[in-house]
Amino acid sequence: MDDVHFSVNLVADVVQMWSQPFMVNAFRAGTIVAVLSALIGWFVVLRRQTFVGHTLSAVGFPGAAGATWLGFGALSGYFAFCLAAAVVIALLGGRGSGRHSDESALVGTIQGFLLACGFLFVALYKGFLNGTNALLFGSFLGITSRQVVVLAVLAVVVLALLAAGGRPLLFASTDAESARVAGVPTRALDLGFLLVLGATVAAVSSITGALLVFALLVLPAATAHRLTARPARSLALSVLFGLVAVWTALTATYYSPYPLGFWLTSIAFAGFVVAAGGRALRERRRRGFRRFAW
């Protein structure tokens, strides 16, 4: 990538970038990952399950490391561990509350142990040391077309599920007891959401690595939640921010010596800071105005 230079002509830059097959695949996978994690992440933030999201992404690492060691390939490991962890958390938490505060210490303990297992698996699989970096921080630039297909299939399934169950999930997430009385199967939705979250985290991890999936899951959604209270608008904004962050980060990575993880997180974080700051400013102005009007 020494001979590529960013120019003022953005079209030429994009054409140059997309002349590389690995970049085309990176953009395809990145787009899918951005949409998926923005939508699922929006519900994660709404349900205050960011710790659960973090746990699921953390257990992806030992899963992938173990699967690589045993020769199954990292992707199957991500799925196996993330889905299993989702079931365990559902069983621990449950009770239709959607919150897991009581279990958080236990979940954190198990998470720590599994991370240790991950490093053991890496050590057992000799010659894998460079791979640790990829498992933790992603390998955006080495995505195969097969990975893109797997991601696309998963995305279609998850989007269909969200379209079908979005409203009851919204009801159950904001007001579980009223939802239950209105006939919403809140327990089933709790478990279902955790499974979808687990599958999403697994798929996204295989691209972004176990550490960055969390940033992509939470940051665009948290930014959107800061900006508007209307559910439909907020969801759309979350997807938009996810896409902008991923596309900008991929471009910046291609034209700079710095890693994707740095760009992706920094851009998403910058968006969050701007949104949070803007809202604080607006609220202060409104309150000031009220005081004046008083």
């Binding site: 379209a163 169950g165 409203r167 009851p168 919204l170 009801f171 904001t174 209105a182």
Partner: peptide, 20 residues
Amino acid sequence: VRMRGVDVIRLGIDGSRWGL
């Protein structure tokens, strides 16, 4: 809770419906 009053009322109308 980032929801408006009308959003909460709306959940009572169609919050338990499936589909878009």
